[in-house]
C-alpha cells in the first residue's frame, strides 16, 4: 500500500531489501547542505476502519506495526483518544504517528490549562480535524509529508451528533458515514457500506446500525482484512465514541477458518 520508491539506479528493488538501511535514501543535496525529509515510511500500520452507528462512531485498527513486510511490532495501539470526545485511528508511518500524538496532546494540554481560567469548552472533533487537514496539506506542500492516513471520530456536543472524517498525507479530506484507509478502502469499505445502507438506505435517512450490529460488521471486516491483507494481524481493537465519551476495547481476534488450506496445492512443504 505505502508506495516504495525505486532506487535511482535500478528499475526495481532487486534483493527486496527495502526498507532496510542499505536501501539508498536521501540522495538529493542542496546548495545549503542536505535537507532531510520523510520520503518513505519505515514502520507502518495498515488499514483503519470507521463506521457511524446509532449512538456514535466506531473506529477499528489492528495492533501491528510492520517493518517493511516483517510483522515487527505486534502490540501497538493505533487508536489514540484526544480529550473526551475525539479519537484518531492512524495508518501509515508509526514514527510520524508518535510525533502527531505528542503535538496534539501538547495542544490539548494547553487548551485544558486555558480552560482553567475561562471554562471555555476544549477543541471539538471538527476543530481538531480542521487542524489536521491544514497540517497535512501544509506539510505535503513543503514536500515533507506527515506519512499517515487518519480517521477522526468524535461526538459533537453542540450539534449532538457524531463526527467521522478522513485526512491523509496528501492533504486529501473527505467525510462519510463509513470510512476506511489503505487496503481497507478496497476490501472493507464495500462491506461497511453494504451493512450501513441495508438499514439506513443510500440516502442515510433510515435507522442506523445498533452497537451490536456495528461491532459485528467491523469484526467481520477485520477478519476479511486479516485473510487478504498481508500487512495485517488477527489482533485488533475497536473504539467507540459516544456522547458519554471514548472507550477503547481490549485487543481481540476474529474466528478464522483454515481447513481449506489443506486442499491447496502448489505452496508449502507438500510433495504432491
Amino acid at each position: 500500500m505505502w508506495k516504495q520508491p525505486a532506487p535511482a539506479n535500478s528499475s526495481f528493488n532487486e534483493y527486496n531489501t527495502f526498507p532496510l538501511p542499505q536501501t539508498q535514501r536521501g540522495q538529493s543535496s542542496h546548495a545549503h547542505g542536505p535537507v532531510g525529509h520523510t520520503q518513505q515510511p519505515l514502520v507502518t500500520g495498515t488499514s483503519v476502519l470507521g463506521l457511524k452507528y446509532d449512538k456514535g462512531v466506531m473506529i477499528a485498527a489492528d495492533n501491528l506495526a510492520s517493518y517493511g513486510s516483517l510483522a515487527r511490532f505486534r502490540d501497538i495501539q493505533r487508536l489514540h483518544p484526544l480529550g473526551k470526545h475525539t479519537l484518531l485511528g492512524v495508518a501509515g508511518d508509526m514514527s510520524d504517528f508518535q510525533w502527531l500524538k505528542k503535538e496534539l496532546d501538547a495542544l490539548l494540554r494547553e487548551e485544558d490549562a486555558l480552560a482553567l481560567t475561562d471554562s471555555h469548552p476544549s477543541l471539538s472533533p471538527k476543530n481538531i480535524y480542521e487542524l489536521l487537514s491544514n497540517l497535512f496539506y501544509a506539510r505535503r506542500s513543503k514536500m515533507n509529508p506527515v506519512w499517515n492516513a487518519v480517521l477522526v471520530g468524535g461526538w459533537d456536543k453542540v450539534k449532538e451528533e457524531s463526527f467521522l472524517a478522513y485526512v491523509d498525507l496528501l492533504g486529501t479530506t473527505y467525510s462519510a458515514p463509513t470510512l476506511a484507509t489503505g487496503f481497507g478502502a478496497h476490501l472493507a469499505q464495500p462491506l461497511l457500506r453494504e451493512a450501513y445502507e441495508a438499514k439506513a438506505g443510500i440516502d442515510g435517512e433510515g435507522p442506523l446500525l445498533t452497537q451490536e450490529e456495528a461491532e459485528k460488521v467491523l469484526e467481520d471486516c477485520m477478519k476479511v482484512l486479516f485473510y487478504r491483507d498481508a500487512r495485517s494481524i488477527n489482533k485488533f481493537q475497536i473504539a467507540t465514541i459516544t456522547s458519554e465519551g471514548v472507550t477503547i476495547s481490549d485487543s481481540k481476534s476474529a474466528d478464522t477458518y483454515w481447513k481449506f488450506a489443506e486442499g491447496l496445492r502448489g505452496y508449502g512443504a507438500q510433495t504432491q
Binding site: D118, H120, K126, N127, E130, L131, N134
Partner: peptide
C-alpha cells in the same frame, strides 16, 4: 478561524 475553524474564545 483558519487553523481550527473556531471563533477564538473572547477571554483568550
Amino acid at each position: 478561524r483558519m487553523t481550527y475553524g473556531r471563533a477564538i474564545p473572547v477571554g483568550r
